[in-house]
């Protein structure tokens, strides 16, 4: 009994305030959001339940589907490219080169800066600077403003994402590469393994955990991307480059379709949850047990 009282007292002292804030800010709005998605909520009042109507109309909404598919394509492209580039950079900056710290800093800095600022910078690049460069150098690839066409605007977003996120993931891979014990590498060297064998058979399996984490983080950031999308393309041309996050925002606050927007937000959450779980389960299975 005394123990139980003590436990309650400890809960009151340490956990009550943090947990109340967590519940009020995250759990309550989330549950209310799920609840509202089954009603005719207009942002303020609920008059009746509508069952799955919001979900059905979202599913039938062409714009929602194209936004969702665009988001999936964007996530897939970012996931692959960010991690390949980041891993390459990590290999590069773990070679004992001159000025390696300076190089690491340069690769990392885009990550410090918020998506809105980066989006505006690249808008200037794609819209103004690169076309002029293309004209003067005669390299045609950036002659047209990439942001004016749906498919090039998509790749523009991917390029900026890779540029922004690869430095962060590079740090994670660098930490993992440096964490591999020297004697393992020496043993491989003595056994006559060459560089690429060491990379594929020793280093990669031993740093599988770093891949799990960095794939997870890339995926999460890409699914939730909003600032960059807003500032770089703003969804243009004609709302064809709207990622799901911006789409939901506009559906609710732009067009006032609160219940429909909320049902799309819930669907977005479900997609993220499924993707994240699948990724973590697959990656965990590939990790080496030691």
């Amino acid at each position: 009994m005394r123990l139980r009282n003590q436990e309650i007292k400890r809960f009151l002292v340490f956990a009550l305030i943090p947990l109340s804030i967590f519940v009020l800010v995250l759990v309550v709005p989330f549950s209310r959001g799920v609840f509202f998605s089954f009603t005719d909520w207009n942002g303020f009042d609920v008059t009746k339940f509508v069952g799955l109507d919001n979900y059905i109309s979202s599913m039938q909404d062409q714009a929602f589907w194209s936004s969702l598919l665009l988001t999936l394509a964007y996530v897939a492209a970012s996931l692959i490219l960010v991690n390949i580039v980041a891993f390459g950079l990590a290999l590069l900056v773990t070679i004992p080169l001159r000025g390696v710290n300076f190089l690491r800093t340069t690769f990392f800095v885009p990550n410090l800066i918020g998506g809105v600022i980066l989006g505006l910078i690249w808008q200037f690049l794609f819209g103004q600077a690169l076309p002029v460069i293309a004209e003067t150098t005669g390299i045609p690839i950036f002659q047209e403003n990439w942001l004016l066409d749906t498919s090039t605007a998509f790749w523009a977003m991917v390029i900026v994402t890779v540029w922004q996120m690869s430095g962060y993931m590079m740090i994670i891979y660098v930490t993992a590469l440096m964490g591999i014990e020297r004697d393992v590498l020496e043993a491989a060297f003595i056994d006559g393994a060459n560089n690429s064998q060491t990379l594929f058979y020793i280093k990669l399996p031993l740093m599988a955990q770093a891949f799990t984490i960095s794939l997870f983080l890339t995926m999460r950031n890409a699914f939730m991307a909003y600032d960059l999308n807003l500032a770089l393309t703003g969804g243009n041309p004609y709302r064809t480059t709207e990622l799901i996050s911006l789409h939901v925002f506009r559906e609710a606050f732009g067009y006032g379709n609160f219940a429909a927007g909320q049902s799309q937000a819930v669907l977005m959450f479900i997609v993220i949850a499924i993707a994240a779980l699948t990724q973590v389960i697959i990656s965990k299975r590939m990790e080496v047990q030691r």
Partner: peptide
């Protein structure tokens, strides 16, 4: 995601 609770 914040988007899932932004509206409520």
């Amino acid at each position: 995601p914040f988007q899932a609770l932004m509206i409520p």
